[in-house]
Design a binder for these strands. Structure first.
Lengths: 135, 135
DNA sequence: CTGAATCCTCACGGATACTG
DNA sequence: CAGTATCCGTGAGGATTCAG
């Protein structure tokens, strides 16, 4: 299959994938939205290194509130990207880890991250130029 | 330091990219947000095939309003992902096309789209199972 | 035809306080 | 420690109307 046909001819068409017969566009868009939301990918990134506790994730993620941490983890768990394990101890301990499914998402997001890293400066410059021209 | 998690193989770490020295985390997150928003990637996908007029894009994109189409195109233009060309005609004609920068984003998004296509059913099943267990 | 302007709703997400 | 409950500001984004 041709994944890297950026010569100009016969490039893969996005709609063929986004709106293909076996892809619910709503589910697809909800996946894109998940990737784009404020904390999900950051959390997946931290869990890559191994299981983490709630409080660890909280302190590793500057700016996040308990509320958003819980909420984001619940969504990731619902999608099967993250697993939650509770230990009946005192004080309570809960560990989160990425599932194989969640792990399989990483390379794709990483590709996006690499693109962003490569083009951040260029985009910032474009924004500045655009804003300057509009004043 | 624990890179021992899974596979054992020296996988790329997301923070190393997301929070690297030459990457503004805010800009990076704004890029992820752009990818995740409701219309941007859909529009990039349509423009892949060639330049399109405003009205073409509008009719090709079910559910979008003029307002959101304009707004999304402006943001893409500001980032330098899309170019806008106005023709001084009557009636007015405006054409949009992806820039090389915008085109360079496509493979990364496509990787995500392929992941989504592959795992849509699995995720939908996970959601159902999760919701069923919670009732 | 290509928008700009306006209004309006609602969900994202932050702050704070409280619980088992 | 690991959340839940509540309040609330802000902004995304839809509907509608008007303009060049």
């Amino acid at each position: 299959m041709r994944n890297d046909a950026r010569g100009g001819v016969d490039e893969p068409r996005m709609e063929a994938i986004c709106e293909g017969p076996n892809v619910d566009p709503e589910v697809f868009r909800s996946i894109l939205a998940r990737v784009g939301d404020k904390w999900s990918m950051m959390l997946i990134g931290m869990l890559q290194e191994g299981p983490r506790r709630f409080s660890e994730l909280k302190s590793m993620t500057p700016g996040i509130s308990s509320r958003m941490l819980t909420q984001t983890l619940r969504q990731l768990e619902r999608d099967g990207l993250v697993e939650r394990e509770m230990f009946a101890e005192i004080p309570p301990r809960v560990e989160y880890q990425v599932t194989p499914l969640g792990l399989s998402l990483v390379p794709a997001v990483l590709a996006l991250a690499e693109w962003a890293a490569t083009h951040t400066a260029e985009i910032a410059a474009n924004r500045d130029a655009y804003d300057a021209a509009a004043e």
